[in-house]
Amino acid sequence: MNIFDKTWAWFTADGAWTDSGGIFQRLLEHLGYSGLILFFAALIAIPIGLWVGHTGKGENIVVGVTGALRALPTLGLLTLFALWMGLGLTAPVIALVILAISPLLAGVYSGIAAVDPITVDAARAQGMTEWQILTRVELPLAAPLIFGGLRNATLQVIATVTIMAYINLGGLGRYLIDGLAVRDYPRMVAAVVLVAVLALVVDALLALIQRALTSPGTR
C-alpha cells in the first residue's frame, strides 16, 4: 500500500468521521476557533482601518505596524502566551488574532483610502455627514478590497489554526501534530488535505458572499 492508499484507508476507516476525535468534530473545532479568531481580529482591525482610511491620520503607523505584525512567528507567540497564561484557549487565540489583524487592517484601510477623493468631496458637497460618507460612499466602494483582506485573513487563519494542536487543543492540527509524533504519515497527509479543502471551500463561500454584497458598479 502506498501512502495515498493508506491515506484513503484512514479516511474510510470505521468511525473516522463520526467518532469522538473524528473528522466532523475536528472540522467543527477548526471552524469554531477560526471564527472566534476572525471575530476578535475584525473587532480590532475594522474600526481602526475605517478611521485611518477615512481621516488619513496615522497611515504610517498602520503600514508599519501591520508589516511588523506579519513578521511575528505565530508559534513563538503561542508558546510565549501559553507560558504566561497557562494552557487553554486564550493564549493561542491572542497569537492568531495578531496574525489575522494585519491582512484585515490592510484591506480595510487601503480600501477606504483608495476611494477617489473627488467622489468623497462630491458627497460632502451634497451635505452628507462624515458618517454618511463613510457608510454610504466609502464602504460600498471599498468593499472589494475589504473582502480581499477578509479572505486573505481567513485563509491564513484556517491554515494556521493547526498550530493550536501544539498545546492541548483540538482542530485539524491534532491529526498533523499527533501524526508526526508517532510517524503516522497517512494521518498527516489526511490533515493537510482536510485543511486545504476547508480553506478552499470557505474561500469560495466568501467569494459568493462578496459577489452578493458588493454593488455591481465596483465588481
Binding site: 508558546t79 507560558l83 497557562g86 494552557l87 494542536a165 501544539y166 492541548n168 491534532r174 501534530i177 509524533a181
Partner: peptide, 14 residues
C-alpha cells in the same frame, strides 16, 4: 492533554 514541547517549559508550567 497533549503538549507538543517534549516535556519542555509548557509541560512544566501546566
Amino acid at each position: 492533554s497533549p503538549i507538543n514541547d517534549g516535556g519542555g517549559p509548557l509541560t512544566v508550567q501546566a
